[in-house]
Design a protein around this nucleic acid. Structure first.
Lengths: 229, 229
DNA sequence: GCACACTACATTGCATGCAATTGTGGGGGA
DNA sequence: TCCCCCACAATTGCATGCAATGTAGTGTGC
């Protein structure tokens, strides 16, 4: 288990804990994150919390409004589209690199990740496996920086994918076929087709999610339940 | 002058100061950065320094080795190549977006930046103008995240461009023609050609710089002389 | 002469206390 | 009744002190 970032210290643990809470939806987009609260909740002082908040701001998971208070990042539609615009060339590049440099061990890992994704049942389970599958593909590029960038961007937009899946049954089926094709194309070393498929896969997700955001009048509130009406 | 990041506080000023010192070469690649030193040098306590170091680590300008000590980032050849691999699709995408969405004001700014670049004399001046020109192009995409990403990546690899220019007179001439063509293609709204040109421009720089690194047995020591006592 | 252990130091990480700034609520006046 | 001003509370930013950890240098034993 490579938890390379956020190594041992208290600050790293705080960062990990906050990340979990945000991605798990317990901290919905837009929620203010106060140092004192987090410090008491996790049983540390404010100093490592400040450090952790700094990192998460750098990762784009938190933002600081003009008055220095940190909020959970909640992308607008335009921001979401921009993130996908950036992800497209990055992830398709990673797929190409992974494809040309694929060895047998990588193919096995990717196939296993694909099977796990297919067998996923619940929405959150699917989301986790989906993330793992795509990050496996990206990791196959053997480009640490590229991998880190893509992870950050995916984390910022991932809650919306769950949203898309929840509202559109057909969405999951199309995604499933795409994932099967991805494994197939990697096996066939068809780098060009793979690159194109990854791009179209993201393009589809992007337009699907944005349509949903518009249709459902969901301006921003993405990730979690809770929303006291 | 939009210096949006690193707002007013002491931590932001420390971050800016450190960034200047690194980019200016007064802190060569690989130098250790000790909190106490920086704090005394800039007349603040260690706390804002820690904050600043955190940000710069997130930006990739500093790295922390296993024992928590921060060093100025000094990319290996492989890392440098990876950065260029990432920059290529990102900057070519930005160029395309800037091209399709260009208005008259933007064209004027870009042309001015191009003229300033042409008229630059000294190496450091050219470097600054070169950065400004390309970032002007990227800013024309009107994608804040894309712009931030590219800025970070360029900052990490920029010292090597200076290196390339210093050792290869022909390099500057080729770059000059490329920059002229970039302005021309934006004016002509030739998005496809522009995207391709930007990619080839970066490709050329990448291979040029890496050849130089190999030839001159310059494993890493990039940026500048000076080394503050 | 070499190897190993021990000590002293340098450096980072964390906790706590204080200053500064901002948002907000209440009260007074027009 | 509405608006403005003042004061207080909440929150972040900064400084300082202390603890832990890793390292280098030295001294001793083999």
């Amino acid at each position: 288990m490579r938890r390379g970032r956020d190594a041992g210290g208290a600050a790293g643990q705080v960062a990990t804990a906050l990340r979990e809470e945000i991605l798990g939806g317990r901290l919905p987009g837009g929620s203010p994150v106060r140092e004192q609260d987090v410090a008491e909740r996790l049983g540390v002082s404010r100093t490592p919390v400040r450090e952790a908040v700094s990192r998460l701001v750098a990762e784009g998971l938190l933002i600081k409004d003009g008055n220095h208070t940190a909020h959970v990042f909640r992308p607008s539609l335009a921001e979401l589209l921009e993130i996908y615009e950036i992800r497209m060339p990055l992830e398709s590049l990673a797929a190409r690199l992974a494809c040309t440099g694929a060895d047998e061990a990588f193919l096995d890992r990717l196939e296993a990740a694909g099977r796990a994704l297919t067998e996923a049942r619940s929405g959150v389970d699917w989301s986790v496996k989906h993330e793992a599958f795509h990050m496996c593909l990206v990791a196959g590029s053997r480009r640490p920086r590229l991998e880190a960038l893509v992870r950050t961007l995916r984390v910022q937009s991932e809650p919306y994918v769950r949203l898309g899946l929840a509202f559109d049954a057909d969405f999951g089926e199309r995604a499933r076929r795409d994932h099967e094709d991805i494994v197939r194309l990697v096996r066939a070393r068809a780098a060009d087709e793979l690159e194109d498929l990854v791009r179209r896969h993201l393009e589809a997700t992007s337009s699907r999610v944005s349509t949903l955001l518009e249709d459902h009048q969901m301006p921003p509130p993405p990730p979690a339940p809770g929303r006291a009406t």
